[in-house]
C-alpha cells in the first residue's frame, strides 16, 4: 500500500524521458535494498551526499525492458592515494538484485562503466562506490518499466547462440590526455534459466557471462563479476590510461566455463 502511493508520487516526479542524474529524492529505502545493504555492508555508513557520490545515469522509463542503458561513473580520476575500489550495481526489484560488481585500480584512470541491463518492473537502480579508504557512497535512480509489458527476454536467442563468444574490443582515438574510453562487445545470449519450457516442464540451464577481466600491458584495469541481469550480448564501456601505448586485453568467462579472449594494440596519447 505504502509502496503504491510512493509509486504514484514518483510518476509525478519523473515525468520525462531524459537520461538524468540521480536526484536526492530518488534515495528511498525498499525492503529489497534494506536486505541487500545488510548482506553486503552490514551496518557500515553509506553516504548519500557529498563530492564522492558516484554518478548514475539511467532512463526515467525503460524503452525496452530487455535493454536498459546505464552508466556508473566516479566523479574524480583515480590516484594512488584516492580511488574507487569497487562499484556495485543493484536493481532492487529484479530477480537478481545484485546485478554486477566492478573492481578498479588506480591504473583504471577513472572508475566508469556503461552497460545495459534487464529491468522487468518499476524499480530503483543503485550505484554504490567503495573507495580505497573504505568509505561507501550511494546514488539511486528510479526506473519505470517499459510500456506494453515488454519482456526482458532475448529477441533472437538462436542468433545469439550461433554467434556466442564473438568479442569486439576497441579503444577510442586519442583525442585528449588522461583516461581513454574503450568498449567491449560480447556476443552471448546471457540467459537466466528462469524460463520453464512449457512442453517439457524443465527449466533451462542458466548460461551467462559471469566474469570479465580487462588488462592493459598485463596489468588489471577492470574486473567484473556479473549476472544475467546484464542484457543479451553484454556490452561494457570503461576507461584506462594508455600511457605510451600497449596491448589491451579482455578475458571473458561464462557459467559453462567457456572462456573468450580478445586483444587490441593501442597507441599512446598523441602517438595516434
Amino acid at each position: 500500500m505504502e509502496r503504491r502511493q510512493f509509486l504514484l508520487g514518483s510518476a509525478v516526479l519523473v515525468p520525462t524521458w531524459g537520461f538524468g542524474l540521480a536526484r536526492a529524492d530518488d534515495d528511498q529505502p525498499t525492503p529489497e535494498w534494506d536486505q541487500l545493504r545488510e548482506q553486503l555492508f552490514s551496518g557500515r555508513p553509506i553516504a548519500t551526499d557529498g563530492p564522492a557520490l558516484p554518478i548514475l545515469e539511467a532512463p526515467a522509463r525503460a524503452a525496452d525492458a530487455a535493454t536498459v542503458p546505464l552508466a556508473l561513473r566516479s566523479p574524480f580520476d583515480q590516484s594512488a592515494s584516492r580511488y574507487v575500489k569497487t562499484l556495485f550495481l543493484v536493481i532492487d526489484r529484479n530477480p537478481t538484485p545484485l546485478a554486477a560488481i566492478f573492481h578498479f585500480t588506480p591504473e583504471s584512470g577513472r572508475a566508469e562503466v556503461e552497460t545495459r541491463v534487464r529491468v522487468e518492473q518499476y524499480t530503483f537502480v543503485r550505484a554504490i562506490a567503495e573507495l580505497n579508504d573504505g568509505s561507501l557512497h550511494l546514488a539511486s535512480s528510479f526506473v519505470k518499466a517499459a510500456g506494453g509489458c515488454s519482456a526482458p527476454a532475448g529477441k533472437d536467442p538462436a542468433a545469439a547462440a550461433a554467434n556466442l563468444g564473438q568479442l569486439r574490443l576497441r579503444a577510442e582515438a586519442a583525442l585528449e590526455e588522461g583516461p581513454r574510453r574503450a568498449r567491449l562487445m560480447i556476443r552471448h545470449p546471457n540467459t537466466s534459466g528462469l524460463a520453464m519450457d512449457q512442453l517439457t516442464r524443465f527449466y533451462a540451464k542458466p548460461h551467462f557471462v559471469r566474469e570479465l577481466n580487462i588488462l592493459y600491458r598485463g596489468q588489471p584495469v577492470l574486473k567484473a563479476e556479473l549476472t544475467f541481469a546484464i542484457s543479451e550480448n553484454p556490452d561494457f564501456s570503461f576507461r584506462f590510461l594508455p600511457g605510451s601505448g600497449g596491448e589491451l586485453e579482455a578475458r571473458v568467462v561464462d557459467t559453462e566455463n567457456l572462456s573468450f579472449t580478445s586483444r587490441v594494440q593501442v597507441g599512446g596519447t598523441g602517438g595516434g
Partner: peptide, 18 residues
Amino acid sequence: MPLSGSTYVGLLSANLPS
C-alpha cells in the same frame, strides 16, 4: 596493484536461480 578480487563472489553465486 591487485584488484580487490572476489570478496563478494559468495553473494553473487548464492544468487543461483533455485
